[in-house]
Simulated assay, not measured.
Amino acid sequence: MNKYTEFLEKYLGTIQYGWSKNENDQKLPFKIVKYAGGPFPGTVSYSTLGLSNENLTSIVSGKQIRQELIFNAYASFGDNNIPGILQQIGQLALKNKRAYLRGDVIGPNGKIFDNSDLEALYITSPVYFTDEFFTFDIDNKTAIIQAWVIPITSQEADFIKKYGWDKFEDMLVDINPDLIDFNRLSIV
């Protein structure tokens, strides 16, 4: 097992299983894996694995970034659309050769889950984990960044576009919503 996989399992729990093909049975350039643990009891985590093999570009700095995408859910939620979400946005990053940055919003594109008002995705640092989880140093020059993917409402997506991600994250700190509850109401 490589050191990066050991690093992920240290924070997310043992890999349970994964997906290497999409729903059309086409092989993906990276895997989606499900871990036994998450940031809190009763939660699980998912991530891309292998997305970081490609350098992606920051549209802000032009810097080359290697990253993996992290998604958390309650274990009782089941897999539902989660692997497909990570597959789609991972493939979009590769197609555009663009890294996701803190504050990026993907969508809204309609309901992400049945019986939920969440319609967009928000990218941020995985703050439900310790700071040591944010990056994995491959060597002195190269690191893999963990980017947390959070489902949000269309109202929250509009707020971020209008007022900026920093104001949205200030609201998250003040209100402290359960970002793993996919039935949660909008905070704006």
Rank of each mutant, 00 (worst) to 15 (best):
Y4S: 00
L8V: 08
E9C: 08
E9D: 05
L12N: 08
G13A: 00
G13R: 00
Y17F: 10
N22A: 12
N24D: 07
Q26I: 12
K27L: 15
K27D: 15
K31M: 09
K31W: 09
V33Q: 15
P39H: 12
P41F: 13
P41H: 12
G42V: 05
T43M: 05
S45F: 14
Y46D: 10
T48E: 10
G50A: 11
L51G: 13
N53K: 14
E54N: 14
E54P: 06
N55E: 15
L56T: 02
S58T: 03
S58F: 01
V60F: 14
S61F: 08
R66V: 01
Q67Y: 02
Q67K: 05
F71P: 01
F71N: 02
A73Q: 06
Y74D: 00
A75Q: 14
G78L: 02
D79M: 02
N81D: 05
N81W: 00
I82H: 07
I82V: 11
P83K: 10
G84V: 04
I85F: 09
Q88S: 08
Q88M: 08
I89Y: 00
G90P: 03
Q91Y: 11
A93L: 02
L94H: 09
K95E: 15
R98E: 07
R98I: 05
Y100I: 12
R102Y: 12
R102I: 09
G103N: 12
G103Q: 08
D104R: 10
I106M: 04
P108Q: 13
N109I: 04
I112N: 10
F113G: 07
S116D: 13
L118W: 03
A120T: 03
Y122W: 03
T124L: 12
P126E: 06
V127W: 03
Y128A: 13
T130M: 11
D131G: 12
E132W: 07
F136S: 00
D137K: 10
K141F: 14
T142R: 04
A143F: 07
Q146L: 11
I150L: 01
S154D: 02
I160C: 12
I160Q: 14
Y163L: 06
G164C: 01
G164V: 03
K167C: 00
F168I: 02
L172D: 00
D174G: 03
D174C: 03
I175V: 13
P177A: 05
D178K: 06
L179C: 01
I180C: 08
D181I: 09
N183R: 15
R184T: 07
R184G: 10
L185Y: 05
S186Q: 04
V188W: 01
